[in-house]
Nucleic acid binder design. Structure first.
Lengths: 144, 144
DNA sequence: TAATATTGTTTGTACATACAAATATAGACA
DNA sequence: TGTCTATATTTGTATGTACAAACAATATTA
């Protein structure tokens, strides 16, 4: 009976899957000394040097305070630096940070292959996109 | 480009969806003063009074230490009590804990309706089951 | 221009979760 | 019986995330 509730509860299943994949992802990214979200943040910075924290939060769907904390850590590891401009804090990657780019991409690919090998690449990707859309709808990002 | 990576990353989408639903669930369960996983734990105890912590962890897919901490809190609120039996810690619900049963069930139903209203009841349930199965496979609980 | 509102960031605090090591008990077996 | 191993739980510590309040800078408007 509880089991039925668990299988029917999106709160539970989404978080459980999150935990399972977090473990896989952390494991994968340990090789470049980054947390998975740190890697995403760095990719966002590669794409737009000088991006603001607010924008980073929007892209990664994290709260501003969470972004502040993540950035603190990465500055501490000299992967990025920030330049305050009025009330904005703009983020740039350091040389050390830039050097990680190829490894990071490699890690994402490997991670995708790893769960793809179990779920099937197609099914894994389809599920992933479906989750993305579900979040968008639940957050009201897409009408109806 | 980053956006593409995010939409294609199951680690990211599962955790994002988890965060969205955690907020909804916490909001819903605030009315009975429980965290969502506390509610699940209590349901597991209703179902089997004297259940061990190990078993609880298996059902909720949480690590033993996490279960210990969750139980500490709920004992603190007098919703459950434990009885040590050799190396086992068996968990029972108190009268105060038992009294919550109807409210808890109500909350789950309301929560399901809430996201069901956005995703569609059918689609929501289908997605939920799919996530459950994906976790099982990724954890090697199901061959092939 | 002064007062007020808005916006972006940080700080203090709290929670859920986990890992690794420690502890305690039970079981196996020599 | 005594020792070794396996099992269940707890403890210490760390991480990721968030909320609310504080702070700082900009924009608005009276």
């Amino acid at each position: 009976m509880l089991d039925t509730y668990l299988k029917e509860c999106l709160y539970f299943t989404a978080n459980r899957l999150g935990r399972v994949l977090t473990k896989m992802a952390e494991d994968e990214f340990a090789s470049c000394g980054l947390a998975p979200n740190g890697a995403f943040l760095l990719m966002a910075v590669y794409e737009q040097e000088g991006i603001t924290q607010k924008k980073l939060g929007e892209m990664l769907h994290l709260q501003p305070s969470t972004v502040t904390r993540l950035i603190e850590k990465m500055i501490g590891r000299s992967l990025i630096y920030n330049q305050v401009e009025g009330r904005l804090s703009r983020i740039y990657s350091t040389d050390k940070g830039k050097a990680l780019q190829p490894q990071i991409q490699q890690c994402w690919d490997t991670l995708r292959d790893r769960y793809g090998a179990i779920l099937g690449i197609e099914d894994g990707d389809r599920l992933t996109l479906e989750l993305y859309k579900a979040s968008d709808r639940l957050e009201g990002k897409i009408q109806e």
